[in-house]
C-alpha cells in the first residue's frame, strides 16, 4: 500500500505510557497519510497527543505499536526538523549562529554557514539582528529564529509544534503571513500543530481534528483555498466562515469531552 506521492504513512500508530503507575493511552490506532508537499494542520483539545505524534515523527520518542513510514527522496537531506513549542532558541548563540545550527552540526564551514543563514535571516525579516543575542529580542523575533532554523536545515519534512502559540494576535498574524510566504516557495511537507482554528484554516491544505483521550483521528477536512494565499482576503471570504463553523462543530464536542473527563478525574 505504498503510494509514491505520499511522504508519510502512519499505520495503527499507538503510544502508551505510564505516569504514576497509571496507564495513559496518548495515541490510539492513528492511520494517516500525508501527501508530498502538503501542509497538514492538526487541531485537537489539549492533551490529545498531538505533540507526542510530532515527537515520534521527529525521532525524539518511540511509538508503542504501529508503523511509521517516511519516504525519503534525498538521503543527503535531514529527514525531519522540528520547531518546538516554547523557548527553544539557544541563548548562548547569536541569532545567526542559532539559525545556522543544523549546518554547524553537519560540519559545513563557517563562512558558507553564514551565507546560507543570511539568506534565511532576510526571508524572515531578521537581517540586522544577525549578531545580537536572543535575550535582547521579543518573543515574536525568537519564533522567527526558530522557524528560520528549521528551514535552514532543509529537511524533507517540517514539524511545527504550536510555534506561534505563545505570541500575541498581532505578531501571530504577521508570522503566519511570513510562514506562508517562505513555505509556498519551498512546498515542504509540513505537519503543524495549533490550537487556533483561524491559523489552521489560513495555513493548511488539510486539517486533522483529533479526539480527546485517547488521541485518535476524528475527521479530516480538506481546505480547498487556492495558493498563494493572502491572510486578509482569506479571512473575510464566506468560505472561511463556513469552514470555521464546520471545524468548530467537530472540535467543540472533543473539547467538552476533554473537560468533563478532567472533572471526573
Amino acid at each position: 500500500m505504498v503510494n509514491p506521492t505520499e511522504a508519510i504513512n502512519l499505520e495503527n500508530l499507538t503510544k502508551v505510557f505510564y505516569a504514576r503507575k497509571k496507564k495513559i493511552v496518548a495515541l490510539e490506532n492513528i492511520d494517516l497519510s500525508v501527501r508530498e508537499g502538503e501542509f497538514l494542520c492538526i487541531v485537537g483539545p489539549s492533551g490529545c497527543g498531538k505533540t507526542t505524534l510530532l515527537r515520534i515523527l521527529a525521532g525524539l520518542e518511540k511509538q508503542t505499536w504501529g508503523k511509521v513510514i517516511i519516504r525519503s527522496k534525498n538521503p543527503e537531506k535531514p529527514l525531519t526538523s522540528m520547531v518546538f513549542q516554547g523557548e527553544s532558541v539557544f541563548p548562548w548563540m547569536t541569532v545567526a549562529e542559532n539559525v545556522a545550527y543544523s549546518l554547524r552540526i553537519r560540519g559545513i564551514p563557517k563562512n558558507e554557514r553564514r551565507e546560507i543563514a543570511d539568506h534565511y535571516l532576510k526571508l524572515m525579516g531578521l537581517d540586522g539582528f544577525a549578531d545580537t543575542f536572543p535575550h535582547q529580542l521579543s518573543g515574536g523575533m525568537k519564533q522567527r529564529i526558530n522557524v528560520a532554523r528549521a528551514f535552514v536545515s532543509d529537511p524533507e519534512i517540517l514539524l511545527m509544534d504550536e510555534p506561534f502559540g505563545a505570541l500575541d494576535e498581532q505578531n501571530r498574524l504577521i508570522l503566519q503571513q511570513e510562514l506562508l510566504k517562505i513555505w509556498e516557495g519551498s512546498e515542504k511537507t509540513t505537519l503543524f500543530i495549533t490550537h487556533s482554528i483561524d491559523e489552521a484554516l489560513v495555513l493548511a491544505d488539510r486539517i486533522i481534528i483529533m479526539t480527546a483521550h485517547p488521541g485518535r483521528v476524528k475527521a479530516i477536512v480538506p481546505i480547498d483555498i487556492p495558493r498563494p494565499r493572502d491572510i486578509l482576503s482569506l479571512r473575510s471570504s464566506p468560505q472561511f466562515g463556513a469552514l470555521f463553523q464546520e471545524i468548530w462543530r467537530l472540535l467543540q464536542e472533543e473539547v467538552l469531552k476533554a473537560q468533563s473527563m478532567e472533572l471526573k478525574n
Binding site: A58, L60, P78, S81, M82, F84, G86, S88, Y101, I105
Partner: peptide, 27 residues
C-alpha cells in the same frame, strides 16, 4: 539546562561530542 535545548540538538542530529560543545558547555 532546559530539556528543550537537548531536544533541539538531538533533533538536528548532534553527535555526543557536539552535545558537549554546542549545548552542555555553553549552557
Amino acid at each position: 539546562i532546559d530539556d528543550i535545548y537537548l531536544d533541539v540538538a538531538k533533533n538536528f542530529g548532534a553527535s555526543p561530542f557536539q552535545f558537549y560543545t554546542t549545548v552542555a558547555f555553553p549552557g
